[in-house]
């Protein structure tokens, strides 16, 4: 797996899963929080990547 995006998604899934199980109780709440965290991880990573794109280092 040489795709940074794929690794970022795998990392986001596993991290979001653990945090959702720590922070919330009940399947419905956990699922919603997991999806929220996963979306936030992926979207903010892409945004951060584009913001850093013009940097020369």
């Amino acid at each position: 797996m040489k795709s940074h995006f794929a690794m970022m998604v795998v990392f986001s899934i596993l991290t979001s899963l653990v945090i959702a199980f720590i922070a919330k109780n009940g399947a419905r709440e956990r699922t919603r929080y997991f999806l929220f965290l996963l979306g936030a991880f992926v979207l903010l990573s892409i945004v951060a990547g584009w913001l850093m794109y013009p940097f020369p280092f």
Binding site: V10, F11, L14, T15, L17, V18, F21, I22
Partner: peptide, 17 residues
């Protein structure tokens, strides 16, 4: 048990990767 299984598998998988 549900949390135990999730934490064991997730953290174990992260270290393995």
């Amino acid at each position: 048990w549900d949390r135990a299984a999730v934490f064991f598998c997730s953290i174990g998988l992260m270290v393995t990767i």
